[in-house]
Design a protein around this nucleic acid. Structure first.
Length: 385
DNA sequence: TCTGGGGTCCTAGGACCC
DNA sequence: TCTGGGGTCCTAGGACCC
């Protein structure tokens, strides 16, 4: 029996956050609009195509975007809603594809291998149907690509956005990729792009033409991945069992500060919210991470691994406070602090009730969590510094 | 109006153990 | 005893993605 042909689709929602806001407020349709921070230090997280025409893109400071387009509409956005819609769309697609992988809040892969006959030997036609269904059922525009593997499909959606459909036939992957710029390869960011351009490598065809060893000399082991991608070779296996590996919370202040008491107060709140989220998963973390960004944007991180995993606000705060006081050495104001938890284990009933004192504290914490759920996040704290 | 917030993965060095 | 070699865990930093 000949090897089965793989059919991997990549679906990408077009300027997802903006599209959702346009459902809530149709007056935004057709206008340059962005979702992002409206404050002094805000940045863009999603830009409509009308806004992109002005050179506006995600991660750009909002102020800069307003300079480029003074009539730009900036919407704060409702991130909880985006996650819910994303989940609904995932479940919707599970009715059409036997395997679906949620790749991010606005992207998914679908494996249609073996479904050719089910869809009348017309999978490209199915892509059009799905696109129309997403528009009809979710009022969201999207782009879909179909090819033999994930990375080719992902690159392909990027070439036909927004509202595009593209099908790369088996065997034509290399031809399709050859005229494209190197920076469309997922994983090639600013640094790698610059490094490759130094060697006059500007298009994927430049990589296709060179021996694999050359690119490996430039990029090390990473060159192997880049080389294979350039040839159109990539994974055709979907990862459906993704598990979160860290939970963190960070905050950039409205104004930089050197006030230690104020900074400790922030660390306390960050510790609280990280622990709250960790408890919601029923997990405990063993490694606690502190992130500190000075006003000159230089950033340091400090870790500490505990003997026992925890999701207790006080334990995390005490550890974070400790490493913060040691790490804050420069006489410079701070613009951001972050707290994170990793190395998770399940917080089993057994471990939760190992000690009486612990148990008592767990009761207090779950009572606090209930109140939080009822009255919102900022309503209650378990103490203060 | 200079630069958010949530993540993942990789590297490299040091500690420590056998 | 002028000092190997793996393996694993931990830490710090950095590139990258959405």
């Amino acid at each position: 029996m000949p090897e089965q042909k793989k059919y991997i689709a990549h679906l990408d929602l077009d300027c997802f956050f903006v599209s959702v806001e346009r459902i809530n407020d149709p007056s935004l349709i057709g206008k340059p609009v962005v979702v992002g921070g409206t404050g002094k230090r805000g940045v863009i997280s999603s830009a409509s195509y009308e806004a992109r025409a002005y050179g506006i893109h995600s991660a750009m400071p909002t102020g800069q975007a307003l300079d480029l387009c003074p009539r730009l509409t900036v919407v704060r956005g409702s991130h909880g809603e985006y996650g819910k819609i994303s989940k609904r769309l995932y479940r919707f697609m599970c009715d059409y594809a036997p395997i679906v992988q949620q790749a991010s809040i606005d992207e998914m892969y679908m494996d249609f291998t073996g479904c050719e006959r089910l869809y009348n030997n017309n999978l490209p036609g199915l892509m059009h149907t799905l696109q129309a269904l997403v528009k009809k059922e979710f009022s969201l525009p999207c782009t879909i690509a179909l090819s033999s593997n994930k990375v080719v499909s992902k690159i392909a959606t990027g070439t036909v956005k927004p509202a595009g459909i593209i099908y790369i036939e088996h065997g034509l992957e290399k031809n399709f990729l050859s005229p494209l710029s190197i920076d469309v390869i997922p994983g090639v960011g600013k640094k790698t792009e610059l490094e490759l351009r130094k060697f006059d490598i500007n298009f994927i065809r430049d990589i296709q033409k060179m021996p694999q060893s050359t690119i490996e000399t430039i990029l090390g082991d990473y060159g192997n991945y880049i080389y294979r991608t350039a040839l159109g070779i990539g994974s055709d296996t979907l990862d459906v069992e993704w598990k979160r590996k860290s939970i963190s919370n960070e905050q950039t202040f409205g104004k930089d500060t050197t006030d230690k008491n104020e900074l400790l107060k922030y660390l306390f709140e960050l510790s609280e919210s990280v622990c709250y989220n960790t408890r919601r998963y029923g997990w405990k973390g063993k490694t606690i991470k502190l992130k500190l960004r000075y006003s000159d944007f230089s950033t340091i991180t400090r870790n500490i691994t505990l003997k026992e995993s925890t999701n207790d606000d006080k334990v995390v705060f005490d550890a974070v406070k400790n490493i913060f006081l040691k790490a804050y050495t420069r006489k410079m104001s701070i613009r951001l602090l972050g707290v994170g938890l990793t190395q998770f284990s399940e917080a089993t009933e057994e471990t939760l009730s190992m000690f009486r004192a612990d148990e008592k504290r767990t009761h207090v914490l779950s009572a606090v969590d209930k109140l939080r759920k009822k009255y919102g996040d900022g309503s209650i704290h378990t103490g203060s510094v």
